[in-house]
C-alpha cells in the first residue's frame, strides 16, 4: 500500500466518517445530548493527552486540572468582550484588555501558556519520581487555585469569570479531538514516542543509550499540558464559566482512572475508557437522583477501578492499540493455516 493510500485509510477516512456521523447527530439529537457529546469529546482529549505524560513517559502526573485552569482562564480572558474586560479586570495589561481575540487564537494561546507553565514547573519538579511527582503535581493544583482566587484584578477571584461567550460547539470539540488524536498517534509512532516508552520502561538503560531523559520528560509534560490547556478553554466556553474550583482533584483522579482503565500508553484504550466513563456517569446520575443516593455513581466507578487494578492491572489494552484490521488479518491467516 502506498503511503498516501495508507494515510487515507488510517486517518482521512475515519475522520470523514466521524464528521458525517457528527453531522447526523447535530440534526437528530436534542441540545442536552449534544452538550453531553461535547463533554465526552473534551474528556477524550484530556485522557488521551494525559496519556502522553502518564502513559508514554510513565510520569505519574495528577496536574492536568492545574493546566486546564490555566488554559481556561487565559482563553476566557482573551475571548471576553473588550468593554467587559476594562470594567471587570482592572489589573489586566492594556494590550490584552483592549482587544478580543478570535476563539481559535485564544485556545492556542491558552494551550501555549499552559505548556509554558508546564516547562517552568517541570524543570525542577520532574526530577522527582513516582509518588513524589504525583504529590508535587497535586500541590500544583492547589497553587494554581490559590493564584486564581487571589488575583482578583485579573481573574475576579473566587467569583470566577462568568457569562463567557458560548462559542464551544461540537465542531470545535471535534477539531481539537482529531488534532489531539493525530498528534498522539504521530508521537507514539515516532522516534520521540519510542524514546518516551524507553524512559518509562527503564530510565537508566535509556539514559545510557544516549536518550536525553530530562528533556524528553519535560517535553512530554508540556505536550500533555498544552492539550489540557486547550481542553480547559473548550470547557470554559461550553459551560460559559471558569472559576478557581472548576477543575478539582476529583477530575484529575477521573482522568487518571481513564488512562489506567484503558491501559497506560494505549491511545484507543484511553479514548474508549473516557467515552465509557463519561457516559456511564451521565446515565447513572438520574438513577442516583431518583434513589436519593448522591455519590453512588462515584462509589461504583471507584470500586470498578479497584477491581480492575486487582484483576487486570495492565488495563484494557496494555500499551498496545487494538488493531481492527490486524485482528481480521490474523484470523484469516489462522483459518488458512488450519487444514
Amino acid at each position: 500500500m502506498s503511503a498516501p493510500a495508507a494515510f487515507l485509510l488510517r486517518f482521512a477516512l475515519p475522520v470523514g466518517i466521524g464528521a458525517a456521523l457528527l453531522y447526523a447527530a447535530t440534526l437528530s439529537l436534542d441540545p442536552y445530548s449534544l452538550t453531553i457529546l461535547q463533554f465526552v469529546g473534551i474528556n477524550v482529549i484530556l485522557a488521551v493527552s494525559l496519556n502522553i505524560t502518564n502513559g508514554f513517559t510513565g510520569l505519574f502526573s495528577l496536574g492536568h486540572p492545574a493546566f486546564m485552569t490555566i488554559g481556561g482562564y487565559v482563553t476566557a480572558i482573551l475571548t471576553m468582550p473588550a468593554t467587559r474586560k476594562t470594567a471587570m479586570l482592572r489589573d489586566l495589561p492594556s494590550i490584552l484588555a483592549a482587544h478580543e481575540w478570535p476563539f481559535a487564537a485564544s485556545l492556542t494561546a491558552g494551550g501555549l501558556v499552559a505548556a509554558l507553565a508546564a516547562v517552568i514547573v517541570g524543570i525542577p519538579v520532574l526530577r522527582l519520581r513516582g509518588h513524589y511527582l504525583a504529590v508535587a503535581t497535586l500541590g500544583l493544583i492547589f497553587i494554581v487555585q490559590s493564584f486564581a482566587v487571589n488575583l482578583p484584578g485579573i481573574t475576579r477571584g473566587a467569583l470566577g469569570l462568568a457569562g463567557l461567550p458560548p462559542v464551544t460547539n461540537v465542531w470545535w470539540v471535534y477539531l481539537v479531538l482529531v488534532l489531539t488524536l493525530l498528534t498522539c498517534w504521530r508521537v507514539k509512532h515516532s522516534s520521540l514516542g519510542r524514546t518516551m516508552l524507553a524512559i518509562r520502561e527503564n530510565e537508566l538503560a535509556a539514559a545510557s543509550l544516549g536518550v536525553k531523559v530530562a528533556r524528553t520528560r519535560v517535553l512530554s509534560f508540556a505536550l500533555g499540558a498544552f492539550f489540557a490547556g486547550v481542553a480547559g478553554g473548550l470547557w470554559a466556553h461550553l459551560v460559559t464559566l471558569i472559576a478557581p474550583g472548576s477543575f478539582s482533584i476529583l477530575l484529575g483522579f477521573q482522568l487518571i482512572v481513564m488512562v489506567v482503565l484503558g491501559g497506560t500508553g494505549s491511545i484507543a484504550g484511553a479514548a474508549i475508557a473516557a467515552v465509557v466513563l463519561t457516559l456511564s456517569t451521565e446515565w447513572l446520575r438520574p438513577i442516583e437522583e431518583a434513589a436519593g443516593l448522591f455519590g453512588a455513581s462515584q462509589i461504583i466507578v471507584a470500586v470498578g477501578v479497584i477491581l480492575v487494578l486487582i484483576f487486570r492491572p495492565s488495563g484494557l489494552f496494555g500499551t498496545a492499540e487494538p488493531n481492527v484490521f490486524g485482528a481480521f488479518a490474523r484470523r484469516r491467516r489462522h483459518a488458512q493455516s488450519t487444514p
Binding site: F60, G130, H131, A134, L250, F253, I256, V257, V260, Q298, I299, V301, A302, V303, V305, I306, L309, P313
Partner: peptide, 12 residues
C-alpha cells in the same frame, strides 16, 4: 502507582 491509584479510589 497501582496502590496509589487504589488509595485515591478508596478515598472517594
Amino acid at each position: 502507582v497501582t496502590g496509589f491509584i487504589a488509595s485515591l479510589a478508596v478515598a472517594i
